[in-house]
Write a protein that binds this DNA or RNA. Structure first.
Lengths: 196, 196
DNA sequence: TTTTGCATACCGACCATTCGGTATGTTTTG
DNA sequence: CAAAACATACCGAATGGTCGGTATGCAAAA
């Protein structure tokens, strides 16, 4: 039961990652999962409920990072630990090559438009992220690791927006392989600007 | 002829902005334009060709900014002039409220996945943007407006990525109205960090 | 100057296919 | 044997696309 349902959800996630909601059909879902149509309607009420379940799972496993697993006082250590930790969170769950940046963002936008409840979850996630960074910055400042007149939250925003922006820029320049490297480079530049 | 075709394209753009390619149907296109199905197939070979034409028009009128219309040596003036210029480019063409950030990015992602040629155009656009910013930074540095050890292009990236990232962050925090304000604030913070 | 011929612009009925969804099985499992 | 886990057959609606037709304009021919 739980196994079949998970199999359906993982397969559906891969499809929804590469195509829009409407573009994914039961035909494909059946082919990719090996299940018949009856199985789908046994576990889910309709197509939208499958999509909702997929997004729920996706949000839990892929979107936000668990900041408690990262250094919370030392900014330098935080930056260096970020991507290894992020990568570890996701491995073992899905073929990560398919979960590339373009598809991840496309899926987020699709969910934002289709699922009314999704927006508030994303908002909460992003606010938590901002809070975590802000607290980190404040700690780094009080430890005199950094020194600047910029308020904590605004500096936190510079780091966060840089990481979002690098993804978009990398997508647009067809250079998604370099996202981690470029993010580290930009974070480092920011860091040097505010280092005490 | 040209008028009818434009009417179709503008109406189709609005639909493709708010829904995915597959989710937009001829039924809706007919209702919104007032044209019959025959008209569409008179002007276009099929649905995909309509989408392509829409994206072509969209790219020309909405995406990139004309950097020649902006100050190219003074960074401060450039930042202040950016959004007024950008806004001017777009007015008079479509109801801009509908062309909000979420829909614009969603359309870009959809086009990236559906139209094979789109990626290269976006890439070229983004590379031009980077070149323009880099040149601007170089000028500002040689005028001693700014002073930092960071290379021109990397500093340009910080500004560009900040603007992309702010859009994403604003979408995720459901705060798209504030995009311009926040971008100006972040740009200003960056500016203060590197000002001579 | 009128008529003929043809191209353009558009309509709407029609078509095959595909879609999501249901109703009814059959098999497996506890 | 009863309930859960599927499979199969089928349905109505919607989809993208076609096709024959018409109304209008415009240029060449008479």
């Amino acid at each position: 039961m739980e196994e079949s349902k998970n199999h359906i959800l993982q397969t559906a996630l891969l499809l929804f990652l590469e195509k829009s909601y409407k573009a994914v059909t039961f035909k494909e879902l059946m082919e990719q999962t090996g299940f018949s149509k009856g199985a789908f309607f046994h576990y889910f009420k309709n197509k939208k409920e499958i999509f909702e379940a997929v997004i729920d799972m996706y949000l839990g496993h892929f979107m936000a990072i668990d900041f408690t697993k990262l250094p919370q006082t030392n900014l330098r250590e935080f930056l260096d630990a970020y991507f290894p930790t992020a990568r570890k969170m996701r491995t073992g769950f899905l073929p990560l090559e398919l979960v590339n940046a373009t598809n991840r963002y496309a899926l987020m936008f699709e969910a934002l438009r289709i699922l009314p409840d999704f927006k508030s979850k994303v908002t909460r996630d992003e606010e938590n992220t901002l809070a975590a960074w802000t607290s980190l910055i404040a700690n780094a400042r009080s430890r005199q690791e950094i020194k600047t007149v910029m308020p904590d939250e605004q500096l936190a925003r510079l780091f966060i927006d840089a990481s979002h922006g690098i993804v978009i820029h990398s997508i647009m320049t067809d250079n998604v392989e370099a996202i981690e490297t470029e993010a580290l480079s930009s974070w480092n530049n920011l860091y040097l600007l505010v280092k005490a």
